[in-house]
């Protein structure tokens, strides 16, 4: 019989499996604590004090949101309430959301809660992608709030007969098949006016999440460039 080597010993591999699995799990849990601290939803105070959060307070719906290049980070970041010129948010410039820019933390939280519930119950994720995850049958919604299609130069405000982005979106969500943009249409999901408001708040909030530059060049390129 050949001399027993440690490499061909089942117990050695059994222990390696246990140790490596344990080590990887501990590392994952430790990183989870760190990540959780960084992605916990911010507060209205943070916004007022100019503290940048990866996931800002729901009251971010009171502010103007854009998606601009940060030279420091080398990719685009959400800019809340104006750019300081270096790719950092100023948290100054407000923007009306359904006619108001003074949504309290409580009201905004309630609206976001309704919107998030709606996004799950209406099964958004099984056609669209949210933060890039979901199905691929309809456009990604990560930065949908910032999509030029819904802006003053886009076609959706005129189509729905509304003057603001949020009202156009809410109108569309309530009667999607009335405003078809392509042969592939969004079905009517029985979304009420209140739910639509919540969903739009959810979308606006999602566009303010720092996604490390995903998606790249969003909304910067207008007009189709087919082929090369």
């Amino acid at each position: 019989m050949a001399k027993r080597s440690v490499w061909s010993d089942n117990r050695f591999w059994q222990r390696s499996a246990a140790w490596i699995t344990g080590f990887a799990s501990v590392l994952l849990i430790w990183l989870t604590f760190d990540t959780m601290a960084q992605i916990t939803i911010g507060t209205d105070e943070d916004l007022k004090n100019g503290v940048t959060k990866r996931v800002p307070s729901p009251t971010v719906i009171n502010y103007k949101i854009t998606y601009e290049m940060s030279t420091k980070r080398g990719h685009e970041v959400p800019i809340i309430g104006g750019n300081d010129g270096q790719g950092m948010s100023l948290f100054q410039e407000k923007e009306m959301f359904f006619g108001r820019d003074d949504w309290s933390e409580e009201e905004a939280t309630e609206l976001l809660h309704l919107g998030k519930l709606g996004s799950q119950v209406k099964n958004c994720m099984n056609c669209h992608t949210l933060l890039g995850n979901g199905a691929y049958y309809a456009p990604d919604l990560t930065k949908a709030w910032l999509d030029p299609q819904w802006g003053p130069n886009g076609s959706m405000q005129a189509m729905t007969g509304k003057n603001t982005k949020e009202e156009a979106m809410a109108e569309f969500l309530q009667n999607p098949s009335k405003y078809p943009t392509h042969a592939r249409m969004m079905p009517n999901l029985g979304i009420t006016a209140e739910e639509a408001k919540g969903l739009v708040a959810f979308l606006k909030h999602m566009s303010s999440i720092d996604t490390n530059g995903f998606p790249r060049n969003f909304g910067k390129i207008e007009g189709a460039v087919h082929g090369k």
Partner: peptide, 11 residues
Amino acid sequence: QMGATWAGYFD
């Protein structure tokens, strides 16, 4: 090329 917008998606 299109930066992942609604229009880009449908293109």
